[in-house]
Amino acid sequence: MFKKMIADSMSKSPWIYHVNTGSCNGCDIELVAVLTPRYDAERFGFKLAGTPRHADIVVVSGPITSQSKERLLRTLEQVPEPRCIVTLGSCPQSGNVFKGSYSVEAPIEKFVHVDVAIAGCTPKPEAVIEGLYKAAMILKEKREAMKK
């Protein structure tokens, strides 16, 4: 009974960890806006976690600069399974306007599998909520799959 309660409450409180890999700050501001009372993602239990070890969902923004690539990978290694990786905006998916730069390691797909991509430059807060909600659903499925 307790196990079921814990599983239910866990699915309703996915914690977010936000990694900025050289983003222009546009996407970061929108993500923070999502957590403010106007959009209030905490209705769905989304909460910013202080450390990757507490996180369920990792939100990556920015085109992954060469400097931040290693740090991103190190952070992602610390996130316990099951985890869900969400890319915010166009940058992590393709490099956006920084594509082809010597200091940008653009597509994040080279390193990790991305579960949900939120397109836009920057995405609207509503789109961010939609993406996070989708990630939470995927997380729930993953958790159930892990139990079996």
């Binding site: 797909e109 949900v116 397109a119 789109a127 939609e130 989708k134």
Partner: peptide, 11 residues
């Protein structure tokens, strides 16, 4: 339309 969320392959 701003609802651009999902798999990168679908976008």
């Amino acid at each position: 339309d701003y609802h651009m969320v999902g798999d990168a392959a679908d976008l």
